[in-house]
Simulated scan of single mutants.
Amino acid sequence: MKTNLQYIIVCIALIFTCFLTSANNYNKTNDKFVVVLDAGHGGHDSGNLGNGYRESDIALKIVLAVGKQLEQNEGIKVIYTRKNDTFVTLRGRAKIANDAGADLFVSVHCNAHNSAAHGTETFVLGLHANQRNFEIAKKENEVIFLEADFEKHYEGFDPNSPESMIGITLMQEEYLEQSIRLARLVEDSFKDKRKRNSRGVKQAGFWVLHNTYMPSILIETGFLTYKKEGAYLNSKNGQSKMSSSIIEAILAYKKNLDQNIGENIYEDKSPIDSDETDETTLVYDNVIFKVQIAASSRDLAPKSYNFKGLTDISKEKVGGLYKYYYGNTSDYNEIRRLEIISKQKGYTSSFVVAFKDGEQINLSEALKTSPK
């Protein structure tokens, strides 16, 4: 009887171990940073034809170049909404990204205007700040009219209606911060590395961005209607340089997300500069301050060994990201001291955030209240 019991226990242990090993291997094979690359237009939808160039062809060539390089990174999985000259619906593009559980959605386009406008623009979802942004979004959203039964699939959405634009901005709000960060990296690379004219990061109501549940951007790589820029974007050299900037931005974004968590663990014994700390207390009633040290798609245990020896770590899942925080106090001077410590540990991008009644609020709003 005793022998049988021992045998059963060993079997259970082996099965449990195998289960854990299989689960761990499953997580490892799926623990990749998923980027969905979307070449705008395609098939019977050529996009704009400024100066005789085809937006759909140029966007595809840039996307394929971006994907080819990203695929060389073992930690990245690339998914394309299209890899040839085919038509994909807006809802189809969003579904591909959502079904993949993507960490990023990057849509590539070329601009057009009946003026000498030129330069790059990268958009995130938001209320159009002006008529120009509304017109750009309207132009891209009108692709739905090329789809059969578009009224059925887009729930009464009207690209010509500003009211429809307002409605589609709400669902992407939780990803806006990360989307803006990536958009800024793209535009900075265009401007600083490729010396392109950057028209900046902008917000507008693009349907395809609204329906993706991850940080998402739409890149307008330039104006085909501006003769010099159109020729540049239609050239191999131009497409190579634009794709290089997009690659650099995505890799920089991923590095920022994964920065200093769970890897390269070390202890920094350097002293804190006492001139930068205030030993007095500055307590704000009903406000909790934390230092956000990282945001990542990786789910890590909030243990000191994952965060360079820092204790009092907490985490919160926001959309597809995990945000990691250091400290928990109502004393603003204390949290500033902890912010210095976190930066000494290597979390150079860390910053103070504020919470009230369990909800994050703007730090400036928290500091407007009177301290005790």
Rank of each mutant, 00 (worst) to 15 (best):
L363I: 14
K345V: 03
K343I: 05
T311F: 02
L125E: 08
A13S: 15
S179F: 08
D103A: 12
K368L: 12
F206E: 05
R199V: 00
A354I: 04
Y253V: 09
H44C: 01
V208W: 07
L49Q: 14
G101T: 06
L20M: 13
H118D: 04
I15D: 02
E279V: 06
Y326H: 09
E276M: 12
F190S: 01
R196T: 03
Y266A: 13
I361A: 13
H153I: 03
S107K: 09
S314N: 12
C110K: 03
G42V: 08
L209M: 14
Y325L: 05
G320I: 13
D258C: 10
I288V: 15
Q72A: 13
L209T: 11
N306L: 03
E187I: 08
L363W: 10
S179H: 10
N256A: 14
R298N: 04
L218T: 09
K241A: 03
N141G: 05
A204C: 06
N84S: 15
V201G: 03
I8M: 11
G40E: 02
D85M: 06
N141L: 05
L182C: 12
K2H: 03
S304C: 05
Y324H: 07
K83P: 00
H41V: 07
G50N: 07
E173S: 13
I272M: 13
V143S: 10
K303E: 13
E334F: 07
C18D: 10
A354P: 01
T225W: 07
N130D: 15
G205D: 06
L218V: 11
E71G: 05
D331Q: 03
F150N: 05
S245V: 02
D258W: 05
H128E: 15
F190V: 01
N24W: 14
I96H: 05
F105D: 07
I96R: 06
A366L: 08
V143Y: 01
E267N: 12
A129S: 13
R184D: 10
D273F: 04
Y347E: 09
F87M: 06
L251C: 09
R184Y: 12
A252C: 03
E220W: 00
N234E: 02
S314Y: 11
D357C: 02
E187N: 10
S56E: 08
E55Q: 08
R337A: 14
N114D: 14
C110P: 01
H44R: 08
I293D: 02
E155L: 13
E220T: 00
Y347F: 15
K195V: 00
R181W: 04
H153C: 02
I168R: 06
S350N: 10
A13F: 12
R184G: 04
E177M: 08
C18M: 14
I62G: 05
N84V: 03
E220A: 00
A116F: 00
F190Y: 15
L185Y: 14
S314V: 03
Y80A: 06
N211C: 08
S330K: 11
A116C: 01
K195T: 01
D357E: 12
S179T: 08
K345H: 12
L104P: 01
I219D: 10
I340Q: 13
N306Q: 04
